[in-house]
Write a protein that binds this DNA or RNA. Structure first.
Lengths: 248, 248
DNA sequence: CAGTGGTCTAGACCACTAC
DNA sequence: TAGTGGTCTAGACCACTGG
């Protein structure tokens, strides 16, 4: 009669731990506060370190914790809401100052991008690398694939320009086109080595991959593949009539 | 001179394994095919089972593999693209036949939803439970929070109706309102026990959480929280002018 | 340098599925 | 019942951070 739980199907220890820790975070810790180290926490809860880590991993995935090697585990601030919708201007984030242009190379895009661009598998396209910053911290990397046919003016003066100037030229030419529509998809991925480094994460860190198709001149004029840190970011798609927010 | 790699920073074993397995999946396996079991794979690669599992976990996160206890590890089909954008009709998926209405309860919503609805923290709202099916398989669960003030007609005949009829009444009343706008956010989460069971996953499985605000009558008329399987789903936001796709 | 999280091992047992 | 993936342990060593 005194039992509060019958546990017909006992939940895994790491899952129960996650719940306990989550509650503790709500009630006993403030943002930025550092938790006791993993060995101590494991001892305190009477579990192996691996089990404790499994619980911490969950909480990090949910954006509740932040772990840094050599430093410790801290309570994460609420996720940042980042707009990825078509609200701002016609070319999406292409004219946004939150993006920093890193450079440009000519590549043969991966098969998934070739399919979207409907170009020849061996066709060379401009790949513009960009980084999205929030309060100075990188939150996303992007590769924008622009077929040479979309921006013919950018093909000529190729050699005289450096990486970044070339990228800016491609973007400038792109913005001259009339945008006829766009398309987005979001899915879960894991950060490759270079993305991980840029985002200050370990390889394999969970990321949200946003694939955007830009339509102009009656075809797919460009494809953007953006990689957002999944632990710290919430992607927003602002469609609402702003009037609705002001009223009432 | 014969070395192809200097490995200044040797990558972790599990990450290298992931790459090797990923390539093998591309070249040597077809969709639905079952892999050798974990103990055998670990032995074959000369690593501990835990390390092998870390690599498999990555690939499952990326939607490349599907693991089922008691059965085995199989090659996953490409992710399903599911529309979550405002393209279909004015009330989003609210009139869509891909959603199945499961029931309705009256609850005090979690703090995050209360903030969006701008209702009193102790206010009771209708919570409509729905499931999104794809080829008969559940791919998402949803809780749609509708304040009683939004659908006054649904408050009266409360007791005479069962769970599902009540939910349908709330939805019907909701659709009568003129939608003034909507708003979406996507973030990574982990499946709670009940969501996990409905989606045929283990607790903690990665999910994409879509939070939708519906505006009507000059205020937030409802808030939907949809939970999609992150391993099998790709969320699409169709904004493009269909004409652009047909041309060229 | 000491202390942190990240990787890896070799084993054990459990929960589930299918035959 | 045999075989699968899921959980858990108790250790070891490594890579990184900061004083």
């Amino acid at each position: 009669m005194g039992t509060t739980q019958l546990e017909t199907v006992p939940e895994p220890k790491y899952w129960h731990l996650r719940t306990v820790l989550s509650d503790a975070l709500d009630s006993e810790f403030g943002v930025g506060e550092v938790l006791p180290n993993e060995r101590e926490l494991a001892a305190r809860f009477g579990v192996a370190r691996a089990t404790l880590r499994q619980a911490l991993e969950q909480l990090e995935l949910e954006g509740r914790l932040q772990r840094r090697r050599g430093v410790g585990t801290t309570v994460a601030p609420p996720r940042i809401g980042l707009d990825v919708g078509p609200a701002h201007d016609s070319w999406g984030g292409l004219a946004d100052d939150s993006w920093q242009t890193d450079g440009s190379e000519d590549v043969t895009p991966p098969a998934s991008v070739v399919r979207l661009l409907a170009t020849s598998p061996s066709a060379v396209v401009h790949a513009v690398r960009r980084t999205r910053l929030n309060h100075g911290q990188p939150v996303a990397t992007e590769l924008l694939y622009v077929p040479a046919a979309t921006v013919p003016a950018a093909a000529g003066p190729g050699e005289g320009l450096d990486d970044v100037a070339r990228a800016q030229l491609v973007l400038r030419e792109l913005r001259r086109l009339e945008l006829e529509g766009q398309d987005r998809a979001v899915e879960l991925g894991s950060a490759q080595a270079d993305d991980a480094r840029q985002l200050d994460r370990l390889p394999g860190a969970p990321v949200l991959v946003v694939t955007t198709r830009y339509f102009a001149q009656g075809r797919t004029a460009a494809v953007g593949v953006s990689t957002y840190r999944a632990d710290t970011c919430r992607l927003t798609f602002g469609e609402s009539d702003p009037v609705a927010l002001v009223a009432s």
